[in-house]
Simulated scan of single mutants.
Amino acid sequence: MTYIIGAACVDVLDRSCIEECPVDCIYEGERMLYIQPDECVDCGACEPVCPVEAIYYEDDLPESEEKFRTAATQLFSEIGSPGGACAFGPLKRDAAVVASL
């Protein structure tokens, strides 16, 4: 299982979750943040610090937010598992569903 960042993060980019993540698995796109599912250790540290409540545990993801699970999966299938957001840097793009909003 993993955590997923949903619609409430689009155009917010608060980054509180990045500061709390102990494994550096939250990557910054142009319009929102994304959790790399293969790097996430399901610790939950990111969820309570999100000021817009955009982070969901995978099993608790509302159906209306399902496109954001797909968005993260597609985005990271293209770039893989970089092994840490800080070293990798901003993605300089977003998943297609986010870019089209």
Rank of each mutant, 00 (worst) to 15 (best):
M1K: 15
M1Q: 10
Y3S: 06
Y3N: 12
Y3C: 06
I4E: 06
I4W: 14
I4R: 12
I4M: 02
I5A: 04
I5F: 04
G6M: 05
G6I: 08
G6W: 03
A7V: 00
A8V: 01
A8M: 14
C9E: 06
D11C: 07
V12P: 04
V12Q: 14
L13I: 14
L13E: 13
L13D: 09
R15Y: 11
R15L: 14
R15N: 13
R15H: 14
S16G: 02
S16M: 07
C17T: 11
C17K: 11
C17L: 08
I18G: 01
E19F: 10
E20G: 07
E20R: 13
P22L: 09
V23W: 05
V23Q: 06
D24Y: 11
C25M: 04
I26M: 09
I26H: 02
E28F: 00
E28P: 01
R31T: 06
R31H: 13
M32P: 00
Y34H: 06
Y34Q: 00
Y34E: 01
Y34K: 02
Y34I: 00
Y34V: 03
Y34M: 00
I35N: 05
Q36M: 04
P37N: 11
P37I: 09
P37E: 07
P37T: 04
E39V: 03
E39S: 15
C40G: 01
D42M: 13
D42W: 10
C43Y: 07
C43R: 00
C43D: 14
C43A: 08
G44P: 10
G44C: 04
G44N: 08
C46E: 10
C46I: 09
C46D: 07
E47I: 14
E47S: 10
E47C: 03
P48Q: 05
C50P: 01
C50L: 03
P51F: 07
V52Q: 01
E53G: 12
E53T: 14
A54Q: 02
I55M: 08
Y56Q: 02
Y57W: 11
Y57T: 08
Y57G: 14
D59F: 03
D59T: 12
D59K: 15
D60R: 12
D60W: 11
L61F: 01
L61M: 11
L61V: 15
P62Y: 00
P62M: 01
P62F: 01
E63H: 10
S64W: 08
E65L: 05
K67V: 13
K67Q: 14
K67S: 10
K67G: 06
F68H: 00
T70Y: 10
A71K: 04
A72H: 15
A72K: 07
Q74S: 08
L75I: 05
L75G: 02
L75K: 05
F76H: 11
S77W: 07
E78K: 15
I79A: 06
I79N: 10
G80H: 07
G80L: 01
G80V: 03
G84L: 02
G84M: 03
G84R: 05
G84Y: 01
A85I: 06
C86K: 11
C86Q: 12
A87W: 06
A87K: 10
A87F: 09
A87D: 15
F88P: 05
F88K: 12
G89L: 08
P90C: 04
L91E: 08
R93N: 11
D94V: 03
D94Y: 09
D94R: 05
D94M: 10
D94C: 04
D94S: 02
A95R: 09
A95N: 05
A96Q: 11
V97S: 12
V97L: 07
S100C: 04
S100T: 12
L101A: 11
